[in-house]
Design a protein around this nucleic acid. Structure first.
Lengths: 98, 98
DNA sequence: GATAAATATTAGCGTATTCTAATATTCTTA
DNA sequence: TAAGAATATTAGAATACGCTAATATTTATC
């Protein structure tokens, strides 16, 4: 039971980084290569690779190789659902002014 | 746009701690005093108070004083929905064996 | 096989986080 | 107003995190 919260927290840590959230958002509808993610996020390549490695290890994304490119995609569509719920909560907070 | 991911991440950080997740879970159906939360989580009082302060600042919980007791409750029921979605994703991962 | 492009890995620095111990504050009751 | 219960705050240590720079690996093409 206690270990369950630990596992839950480990998974949530994935969403505790702005860069990883941006990656999730970019992958919500289609897979993208590392290069594409680097261009869109305007972050360093090593950094993006590290974040993708973390997300893959946590089971949030999958990867597939095609030539020299590696394409990443979300492993579970419910991730987007959770993402959007947090956005709703944020939007509500804005209105209240918190 | 970029700041949106920052704010989103700040909110998700609340769920990146096993102790805070346990607090959210304990508060899912009813408000509880700090003492009750300390007893149920078996963590130090200072620690629980700190976590509650973080969660209150982030707008995840509300508090109400009654005598010497302070009762905390979830501020938005959708928090539980997001919590449960992550649990579903975790359960699926268990089956796959990741 | 050498070269070039795409991606991954490693090391290290600065910062943030979580916990404990000690102390302070708030509120009730006598 | 003094004492005790509930809660909050502060300081400090150990650990974890996110980024950059440099280097290594993988794959395709010549």
């Amino acid at each position: 039971m206690d270990e369950m919260y630990q596992r839950h927290a480990e998974l949530c840590k994935v969403f505790a980084s702005p860069t990883r959230l941006e990656i999730v958002d970019l992958l919500r509808s289609k897979e993208l290569s590392v290069t594409a993610l680097v261009e869109k996020t305007k972050m360093g390549q090593a950094n993006i690779s590290q974040h993708l490695a973390i997300m893959k290890y946590k089971g949030i994304v999958t990867s597939r190789r095609s030539g020299t490119n590696v394409y990443y995609a979300l492993a579970d569509s419910r991730i987007v659902a959770a993402f959007d719920i947090i956005c709703e909560v944020l939007a509500k907070k804005r209105m209240i002014g918190a």
